[in-house]
Design a protein around this nucleic acid. Structure first.
Lengths: 212, 212, 212, 212
DNA sequence: GATGAATGAGGATTCATTCAT
DNA sequence: TATGAATGAATCCTCATTCAT
């Protein structure tokens, strides 16, 4: 009846739940990485998490929801780790440096969280109907747009969006290659991704530099 | 039962078989496009082809085999339509023209054969275990390498392969964006893809031009 | 922990328990009405009641028990509302009036408590294995027998029971029709039910009237 | 290539399928009778039929479809066995005879096909949303209306429909009682059902007889 | 070759019920 | 008491594949 009992009892309960959720998400990450999103089964996720199927459904209504939550948490962690700082770029920063550091950070995060790729890639049907994927994609596009906005302050919104899509596409394609290689070759691919992006954005940004 | 029948019957049978195979592959293309490779079911393909599942298995041992054959035929048709010409490029051709025409041709083919994208994309698991996908990918890489070889005759093979992977990655990412849009926006994305590729390759090719 | 607490605590607990039980039964009524008895789930009942599944099982050992208790309370309320009066009928009362008022009262109760129908109907298997249903049914039959006994004092028990079953069957069938309609049509069906019962019982009762 | 081969091959195929369908429907009838429609599971039906679940789904898309087909076949058999003759009644026939023979025939059919009752009863939720049940019910109402139309040629359609619903309700309630008893008691209930119906319809038909 | 019936394991999801807290 | 997490069998249904005809 005291405040503590009313606050802590539920907290302890929720704590167990939270642990289970984390455990399930981790298992889901594992399974998504191994088999891909489409082929991943809720039963497999539950098995990987060492719980019964019923338990999974106590926390998530379906596979989609798991993917969405996973994506949310990843984006959250990304923001926490690298800060909202992805966006604002000091106009004085040379383009190569800006791109280089952004790519490095993204890559670091993606190599540490391979699920991210699986989620970005999404289901294999061209149009990709999945909410999870769409949501993640939209968030990413937003962040890239933010970054680009600081680099290309005078670009019309439509162009900016298009450029963001192209950059993200390049990054995703590059990421696939990076993840597929190791060591020196991986590093080489990272360099290529940066190159492609820098060279692609250079002319767009050029005016700014020219004026400065 | 006579000798003649032994000569002609098989021919007729093979002809019928060929028709069936074409029919099945077309149906498979349709289904792959609609549902994606992973989610496509052999039963659905058979239904779409208007034949029984058993018939399908008379020509293909499994889903994989269908995808592989489909990829082969697509590559074949691509070669027939655009010729081996993709590769040899007159060293005098300006880079933009070479890239532009190659992208246009690829894009034309891909828009006419949407399956191609589904096959390239393959199942959604990162590492891509599927033979069908791998095979198609390898062939494509080969062709791109060929094209690049004529542009960068002095590049070491490892660099060439890497560059080919990057170019194909850019192209695939671009294709996804192109297919996702229509009209003017689609055209704009096509332009962007060309831009990206040209700007990426320019410095590599530069020496050649400089020398010329 | 003191003696007083042993006297008062239980009372408070019982009071709370009673409230919980009432709450659960009301929720169960709601769910039974919405989804039918067979399809009703204990989890759904608990959710509807705003408590956890565990709490439900603290008061009821299973779904059956809920239905039984619900039936009991309904019968109890029925008795309290309309009195034991259902049974004793002044022999001088004309049959139509006796039947008419009995049907009206039953119908009023049933329209106010739609669960009643769900419970009477019971699970959809012909033989009705459910205790809940059986118990309710038995009680109802008993009451109808009581009513009939006052109308047909000389009928042999076996006939009386049979007649009671027939009357209850007619009433239940009629109730279904009544509940399925509204307004004037509903009223018309109520009239029909009365008609059927009166006409069915008339000849059986006739002797009594003739003799009197 | 001859007509026979084209006609008979499929026929033989279909023959196997027809047998399976009959077998599945019979199994479904069994299961519906035992457990009721709502609680019946497709797996249980398949098991009862001695086939795998997949086989069941080759012929029926879901439980509903099984029930519908079962109902259709039952109605069909009913019509074939007792003829469309249920409807037209010679105006000279005494009411008791007409009702008596109709009830006898219905009862005979229903005792021989206990599923019928399960299907008529339908799922246990009051509103009964099931197509199978609705369809069967509609057909039955239609037939009863036909019968009544010949007895009450001057009744307005709305009354006729209502009367049909009441009669069918009485019959169904009676059937439940009849099926729940055996031997002499069962016979007694059959008599009661006839009584109820005759007494209910007598006054409505009376004019006709009066005039005759 | 062609058919379509048959399989049975596996998919997502639900549910009555139990148990630690 | 109350909670809500946990269970695991059971639900419906699908699918790649095989096989008798």
């Amino acid at each position: 009846m005291s405040d503590t009992s009313e606050n802590e009892q539920p907290r302890r309960r929720q704590a167990r739940g939270e642990r289970r959720i984390a455990q399930l998400l981790q298992a889901a990450a594992q399974v998504f990485c191994t088999t891909g999103y489409t082929a991943a089964s809720t039963n497999a996720i539950a098995r990987e998490a060492g719980v019964s199927p019923g338990t999974l459904y106590q926390f998530f209504p379906n596979k989609e929801a798991i993917a969405i939550e996973l994506g949310d948490r990843l984006m959250h962690e990304m923001r926490e780790t690298y800060g909202e700082a992805l966006a604002p770029v000091d106009p004085a920063t040379p383009l190569e440096e800006a791109i280089g550091s952004a790519v490095d950070r993204f890559m670091a995060f993606n190599t540490e969280h391979p699920v991210f790729f699986a989620l970005m890639h999404g289901p294999d049907l061209p149009g990709g109907i999945t909410e999870a994927h769409d949501q993640l994609h939209a968030t990413l596009i937003g962040r890239v747009e933010g970054l680009l906005a600081s680099l290309l302050p005078e670009a019309p919104p439509a162009d900016l969006t298009r450029t963001a899509h192209v950059c993200l596409g390049i990054y995703k394609a590059g990421l696939e290659l990076v993840l597929a290689h190791e060591g020196a070759e991986r590093a080489a691919y990272v360099r290529e991704v940066k190159n492609v992006l820098v060279r692609y954005l250079e002319p767009l940004v050029g005016d700014r530099l020219g004026r400065a």
